[in-house]
Amino acid sequence: MGLPTVRIRWRQRMGFGIVLLGALVLVAHGWHRVETHPQVRDALLGGLVAALATALGAVPVWFSQQLSARVQDTLFGFGAGVMLAACSFSLILPGLEAARAGGAGGWAAGGILGASILLGAAALLALERWLPHEHFIKGVEGPASRTLRRTWLFVFAIALHNLPEGLAIGVAYAGGDAMRASALATGIAIQDVPEGLVVAVALLAAGYRRSVAVGLGMASGLVEPLGAVLGAVVISHAVSLLPWGLGFAAGAMLFVISHEIIPESHRKGHEAWATGGLMWGFVLMMLLDTALG
């Protein structure tokens, strides 16, 4: 075993250990907050609904594996559109309002949101670079290796981008506007349904057993409740951080849209279908935000 391989595996184990430790600390510290603070409790429920939507999306793979590449790309585009509208109407605009309510002027409010958006994107970029998910598949060579690596890269990307979605739910509920937070959680849950489906389909197409594909598709959304509680706990401790939290979540989601979802939806040559899905997803989330917010 070469030195680079040892370092890669060490980084993987260390990364997963830190993530697991952080999750355990969050659960232990946050449970009391969940029991005694309604905003944290609502955030947890919103995150659980999103995770349940992801799980429901994976269920049809038990009965059928037929999902064309064109349909998958359209679903990717739809999810990107929902997330893009959520960033705009449920995170960035409320963040600007929160900054102004805290006494910031127009330029200062824009600067706060701009800086926090860049911080959110930088955090996701660092996390993606630090966790070397392209090296998960070992012992397989040739085209099969490339297929498995791309499949697991995609699965990891979906699970990773569920973290800022959960954070966005938690921050929104901590902001005190329950209707707007509910609109955001509803929109995220809607776009999580096709995510669970395409994860399970991708794993099934890569040769995994149907039970494994469905199980991992369901599990890919479990990070959302943890992210929701984390976002709500942090913001409820320091209300002044609300515009920063909203901008951070928006930046993380914008990074995922541009870096993962849109490129994946265009990779197989169905750009028009993916773009159509994005437009419909954006309009649906905008209507949800207008009606519920």
Rank of each mutant, 00 (worst) to 15 (best):
L24Y: 04
V25M: 10
L26Y: 03
A28R: 13
G30H: 00
G30D: 00
H32L: 12
R33N: 06
E35T: 15
T36D: 09
T36L: 09
H37K: 10
P38Q: 12
P38D: 12
Q39N: 13
Q39F: 12
Q39A: 14
D42H: 15
L44V: 06
G46C: 03
G47A: 06
L48A: 05
V49Q: 05
A50Q: 01
L52C: 08
L52R: 05
A53H: 08
T54C: 06
A55V: 00
L56C: 09
L56S: 08
G57H: 07
G57D: 07
V59N: 05
P60V: 08
V61N: 02
L67G: 05
L67K: 01
S68H: 11
A69W: 15
V71T: 12
V71K: 12
L75T: 05
F76K: 04
A80F: 02
A80I: 01
G81Q: 04
V82A: 05
M83K: 05
L84N: 04
L84M: 07
A85D: 06
F89P: 06
S90Q: 10
S90E: 10
I92Y: 08
L93F: 08
E97Q: 15
E97L: 15
R100S: 11
G102M: 09
G102P: 11
G102S: 10
G103I: 07
G105T: 05
G106S: 12
A108H: 15
A109P: 03
G110Y: 01
G111H: 07
I112Q: 10
I112A: 09
L113S: 06
G114Q: 03
A115P: 06
S116N: 05
L118M: 13
A121V: 06
A121T: 04
A122R: 12
L124K: 09
L124M: 13
L125P: 11
L125C: 13
A126D: 14
E134C: 12
H135A: 14
H135Y: 14
F136A: 14
V140Q: 07
E141S: 07
E141C: 04
E141G: 04
P143S: 05
A144S: 13
R146Y: 12
R146V: 13
R149I: 01
R149H: 05
R149E: 02
R150N: 07
R150Q: 09
T151I: 02
T151F: 00
W152I: 05
L153A: 09
F154A: 02
F154W: 03
A159D: 00
A159F: 00
